[in-house]
Nucleic acid binder design. Structure first.
Lengths: 228, 228
DNA sequence: ATCAAGATTATTGTCTACAATGTGCAGGCG
DNA sequence: CGCCTGCACATTGTAGACAATAATCTTGAT
């Protein structure tokens, strides 16, 4: 008899389930960055023993979401601005690559899907105060889809299973809300244009610029913070 | 009282030690790609219980060196040519980034170190049949140093703790020996030239080309193999 | 003879208990 | 008064035993 959550049967082990739950808790900010992970306490909270919990923690270490010190324990990672910039530098080139590959391989149907996604975002922006919503969820959708279209499975895992979680953690940690949604929306359209044209070089360039903008915004915030 | 091996005190836990040993065994080919990891057997071999061993395996999963199927077990990853190309695509842009950053930040002393490394490689090539040696060890040294000079710690970890191990695994798996050492040597020199000039854009470009050449060689081998 | 169903074995998943290490506090000494 | 020492506690690391699941083998029927 397997447990059912959200109509999805949990096929995995307890360790897998707890891994997911802790990861979500971390990226949502429920577990404060830098806070210590207490094994007896957490195992009691999830109703499992320390064995599977420790396995889950090791997997979280693989995702770079916790840092383990031997004989001391694990702590939730705390990203400073410098590290966030490092991640943006990496993301910039990786998503540029993904976008270029997507431009080479995307079918007409794929492009349609991209357009549909942008249209959906536009409706959301125009209706309710979608500005917050857009960059928070919609932006991610867009980037996910492009990376998926790249056809490079390892690239997808690297970006979607690791880097995006880390960036989300940073945003929650710093309570930074995404800015410039209107401009981002225009940039997204141009990126899709390039993909439709099969212009890999341009798609690469535009995506890099798109992310470089976000990086620049971040670095600007850092400068302002350090100025005062 | 801590155990001493090779004059280096083993500060970590048994799980850490076993993690290192298994990782080495995998990338050296001692554990065949695709082979199943038997927990009772391995734990007996290392003289530890299954608990720490399982933690080590979870960490190996984080490095992408093993794949775990719930209730079935872990297997050493087996990379096919397509996956190797995916890794090269990623490596290409990441090392391009690293090289560009290195060009921006390298001091005169850093450049000296790079030159010294190349000189050492040259001696090794000229003396014994260094052609094999060069690309096998020396090439890695060169790339390690450049990535270190980038100043991006996360990039260093990503490349040196993950991707390089995977590529080494692939080389062992396919028994592919590195080719074109002389050309690679020239390319290395030009890359250092660009770094010395602080020309980030050129350094980025040259490093990308350098790795793209290796990628092309790989893809050519794939084509030849599929042609017959 | 082949396939399927059941039983058996092996392996993974989990739990509990114990050992080893780190942490914090109290008391004594300079 | 401050600092060091040593004990007590908490937490992490490890081991072994048990439960659950998958893999294998046997057996029987068609």
């Amino acid at each position: 008899m397997s447990i059912i959550v959200n109509n999805i049967p949990l096929t995995g082990t307890r360790a897998d389930s707890v891994f997911d739950q802790i990861r979500t808790a971390i990226v949502r900010g429920d577990l404060a960055p830098g806070s210590k992970i207490n094994e007896p306490q957490l195992s009691k909270h999830f109703g499992i023993s320390r064995g599977p919990l420790r396995e889950a923690i090791r997997r979280l270490e693989g995702c770079k979401l916790v840092e383990i010190t031997p004989n001391v324990g694990a702590r939730v990672v705390s990203l400073d601005a410098r590290q966030a910039v490092e991640i943006y530098e990496i993301r910039e080139v990786l998503e540029g690559l993904a976008c270029g590959l997507a431009a080479q391989q995307a079918t007409a149907q794929d492009c349609e899907q991209l357009r549909a996604l942008l249209a959906k975002h536009e409706r959301e922006i125009e209706s309710e105060d979608g500005k917050v919503y857009y960059q928070k969820e919609g932006d991610l959708d867009f980037h996910y889809l492009i990376v998926a279209l790249s056809g490079n499975a390892r690239l997808f895992k690297l970006l979607c299973d690791e880097l995006y979680h880390l960036l989300r953690l940073y945003r929650v940690q710093t309570s930074s809300q995404p800015s410039r949604p209107a401009q981002a929306f225009r940039e997204h359209h141009r990126i899709v244009d390039a993909i439709e044209d099969g212009d890999a070089e341009l798609a690469d360039l535009l995506m890099r610029r798109h992310i470089a903008s976000a990086k620049a915004t971040l670095m600007q915030q850092i400068d302002e913070a350090s100025a005062e």
